[in-house]
Amino acid sequence: MTEQKRILVKGNEAVGMGAIRAGCLYYFGYPITPQNEIPEFMSRELPRHDGEFVQAESELASINMVLGASAVGVRSMTSSSSPGISLMQEGLSYLAGQELPAVVINVVRCGPGLGGIATSQGDYFQAVKGGGHGDYRVITLAPASVQEMYDHTILAFDLADRYRNPTMVLADAVLGQMQEPIFEHGDVPPEPRKHWTLTGAANRPARHLKSLYLKEGELEAHNRMLQEKYREIQKHEVRFEEYDVDDAQLVVAAFGTSARIARTAVSRAREKGLKVGLFRPVTVFPFPGMRLCSLSERVKKFLVVEMNTGQMVEDVRLNVKGDTEVEFYGRPGGAIPTPVEVLTQIERHY
């Protein structure tokens, strides 16, 4: 890559920049803190790129506008924060059922209910276990820096198109609001050809995009096909990052902002001579369970740190070997675990 200038941007703006870089010219969204900089950015930039920005009447409408845009073959996206993402679950289920690519950004805030606008990772389950009705999965990326807010948005479009599946960038309020220097990379994978779009049955038979299957066995077969796709995703798209795990006796597992905080705690633990490492899932669906499983052959103790009361920890427990100890430290309701708190937990469980 050629020498490039770094620019200081907010996480939410990096999402918008990444989206436009990925060729997304159609944005549909509804205001909600702490992600308002995304629709604001898109409303400012898309008209300059001959794109369309629509402020929808609700998140129900925005996800369905994305569904319509996706069906005619363009790259489009929406963004929201937790309460709005709850409203989008219906649409996500339809997108998954109709095998439509879409990119959804969730700048997670704390709940339940109206909760608050402070940061949280309380939407992990909703994101990685399907979220809406039916048996489906949403590809879910968990950025941990402003650079990754940009990179993951581009990656999300690529994955969504390649697998014809909704893809979520599961960020949080800290990532959305903080500023860091980023590089605007030039490389965007080419958009795959879409042979299924609804662009008019001019010289071909009519196409239908649907998720209703009434004939006996049809829906089961459709579900099995979807599950096969999810297995392919699990096989090929797992991404994770590790720091200092090689000789670690205790490995901290955390995603997103928690991983950033844990990284500082792990460095301080190392300075104190403790053999501690950090495991950071970059994709949370597909979850890097196989890697955790092999790590657990050697590492006998994991400490999972989250900004919730324990969600990803369940996936860690599911994947590590039976005799592995898995401890948990979490702060819910908008509280942020500090590096000192995490270090204290490391020392306690080491």
């Binding site: 159609y26 129900l60 506008m65 569904l67 319509g68 649409g91 009519a206 995009l209």
Partner: peptide
């Protein structure tokens, strides 16, 4: 004999909006 998409219950105008704005 034309292309058709299924919308979630009640959301057809939103789906149609997304389509028409994009194409």
């Amino acid at each position: 004999n034309c292309d058709i998409i299924e919308a979630p219950h009640g959301r057809a105008p939103a789906v149609a909006t997304g389509m028409k704005r994009s194409r």
